[in-house]
Simulated assay, not measured.
Amino acid sequence: MAGSQSEPKQERAWRTRAHILQMAAELFAERGYATVTLQDVAERASMTKGAVYFHYKNKEALAVAVVHEHYVRWPLLLENVAARELPPYETLVTVLDRVAEAFRDDIVVQAGARLQIERSLIDADLPEPYVGWEDYLTGFVKEIEKAGDLRPGITPRGAARVIVAAFFGMQHISDVLSRRADLAERYGELRDVVLAGLRA
């Protein structure tokens, strides 16, 4: 009986934490880390500041939670693409298509990316950015190479590093200049120039 009574309370707590995190992500994406306060988050979430403190002890903890949630998005996306069992090059392109859509549409992804750029302002340990993507895409490009589709002279690791630099630079520039309104256009250009340039 006690367990059945505690479950709704735990679920409410989970929903409250998720709501606070979503509201914080909106603010971090809009304004960056430095100018956002827990009071701002509380007001955006229609809660008291004390209620926010109950779930997140300070702004650093909230920023870390947003960044971690950013990274939680990727495994499911990658699994969904892998389930389609496309050829290696098409798999690579489809993964980046989905990631571009996430950067365009998902406020938590946008906030996590901005917080990683502003990591020097955050007095907390954040996951290391970019390296995981470089490792992951290196594996993809190796598969393209095995399939005989990689242009001669290109190394898988070098290709992965260029793709990561081009992609994350592209989305950041789109954010700064147009709040990502032109992200689809910029990503299309990256596909045509960088990704198409991988093929033999």
Rank of each mutant, 00 (worst) to 15 (best):
V108G: 05
Q110R: 10
P88G: 10
F103T: 06
L96A: 07
V93E: 15
Y136A: 12
L137N: 07
D125H: 12
P129Y: 00
P88H: 13
V109R: 04
R84I: 05
P88E: 13
G112Q: 03
T91F: 12
A83Q: 13
Q116I: 01
L86M: 09
P87H: 13
D105R: 09
V95S: 06
R98S: 13
Q110I: 04
A124K: 02
D97R: 11
L115I: 01
D135P: 04
D135W: 11
V81L: 07
E101C: 10
W133A: 14
P127G: 02
Y130C: 02
D97P: 06
D97N: 14
D123N: 07
V99P: 05
R119F: 01
Y130F: 11
A102C: 12
A82G: 08
I107V: 15
V95D: 13
E118N: 01
G132Y: 09
L126K: 02
A113H: 09
I122N: 00
L115F: 01
A83V: 08
P129H: 01
T91W: 14
R114C: 00
L86D: 07
I107P: 08
D106I: 07
E118T: 00
T94Q: 14
R114D: 00
I117T: 00
Y130N: 05
G112M: 03
Q116M: 02
E128V: 03
N80K: 14
R84L: 14
L137C: 06
V131S: 10
A102W: 11
T91A: 14
L121A: 03
Y89Q: 07
N80Y: 10
P129C: 01
L86G: 04
Q110G: 04
D106A: 04
A82I: 10
D123W: 06
V99D: 12
V108E: 12
A82K: 15
D123H: 10
A111G: 02
V93Y: 12
V81F: 11
W133Q: 09
L115V: 01
V81A: 04
P127E: 03
P127Q: 02
A124L: 02
R114E: 00
L121H: 03
A100C: 08
R114V: 01
V131D: 14
Y89W: 12
R84T: 10
W133D: 11
E134D: 08
Y136C: 04
W133N: 07
D125P: 05
P87G: 09
V99T: 14
A124T: 03
N80D: 14
S120Q: 03
V131L: 13
A102L: 15
T91Y: 13
A102K: 14
L121Y: 04
V108H: 10
S120H: 04
E90G: 06
D106T: 09
L121W: 03
R98T: 14
A83T: 08
D123S: 06
T94I: 09
E85K: 11
R84Q: 15
T91R: 15
I122P: 00
L92H: 10
A113C: 05
L96Y: 11
T94M: 13
L126Q: 03
D105Y: 12
Y136I: 06
R98V: 14
P87W: 12
I122F: 00
A83F: 10
